[in-house]
């Protein structure tokens, strides 16, 4: 069914102390596609998302078993450089969180940390990233304006530009449009559609219609387990599993 896998997860178990948050999850996430993770609160979808760039490492008492292979390399291998990993795997959060700096500095921040000092090169990265995040036309004459002065929707696209600036391969999005108005939501959704040409995108959303609109594949999580994974049009028209059907029809969760 799926030809190229960007991420292959094998028997992933994740514990917060004694609580098992992910239970034997195995999934193969396709390259250059949008995969939506859906499920009721506490089902493990955000935990799973964070496991893909080792964000859970920052939480005390987390224990992880199983494998997460990114391009066939296990990201939980001792020799993996987590900073390098997170360059490859960018993340966009529910609430936009630009730095209290200029628009330009927000986008140039990552490349600068990575050692790029050439002004011309930085200008180019800032422009390309803002173009790709569909914000360029709105801010090109105002790059020195503080990022926090932008609207909510613009701030979220600035955060996407910031994530793109370090040239990732994968974008993890945790409810990226849940705090946005319908117009900004449409812009972010259009952006996701455009970005999948160059990136593998994994998005957590509580909005069923958004999952249906933006994703190629959908994974339904329930109580830490991956219940069903498949093409989005199949999941939303005739899911194989009764729990999936009940959830997408709004029967529980």
């Amino acid at each position: 069914m799926i030809e190229n896998h960007k991420i292959v997860v094998e028997n992933l178990n994740l514990y917060y102390g004694k609580k098992k948050a992910l239970n034997n999850v195995s999934i193969e996430i396709p390259s250059n596609k949008v995969t939506a993770l859906i499920g009721p609160s506490g089902c493990g979808k955000s935990t799973f998302l964070r496991a893909l760039n080792r964000m859970n490492d920052l939480i005390d008492g987390v224990k992880i078993e199983g494998k997460v292979l990114l391009d066939e390399l296990d990201i939980y291998n001792k020799n993996i450089d987590v900073v390098e990993l997170r360059k490859k795997v960018g993340m966009i959060f529910q609430k936009s969180n630009p730095f209290p700096k200029s628009i330009y500095e927000n986008v140039a921040f990552g490349p600068k940390i990575n050692g790029i000092t050439d002004k011309k090169k930085l200008d180019e990265i800032v422009e390309t990233s803002l173009l790709r995040s569909a914000l360029w036309d709105e801010v090109k004459d105002d790059l020195n304006k503080n990022g926090l002065s932008l609207s909510g929707g613009q701030q979220q696209r600035l955060c996407i530009a910031r994530a793109l600036a370090v040239d990732p391969e994968i974008l993890l999005m945790d409810e990226p449009a849940s705090a946005l108005d319908p117009i900004s939501t449409t812009k972010v959704e259009d952006l996701i559609f455009e970005l999948k040409k160059n990136y593998t995108i994994i998005i957590v959303t509580h909005n069923m219609q958004q999952a249906a609109r933006v994703s190629d594949y959908t994974a339904f999580f329930y109580m830490g387990k991956l219940i069903e994974f498949g093409e989005t049009n199949k999941i939303f028209t005739s899911p194989s599993n009764k729990q999936t059907e009940d959830y997408i029809r709004g029967r529980f969760g």
Binding site: M208, Q209, A212, F236, T237, S238, P239, E245, I248, R249
Partner: peptide, 9 residues
């Protein structure tokens, strides 16, 4: 209501 699955059918 934007029905899906069997509701949509």
């Amino acid at each position: 209501f934007h029905p899906v699955a069997s509701d949509l059918r």
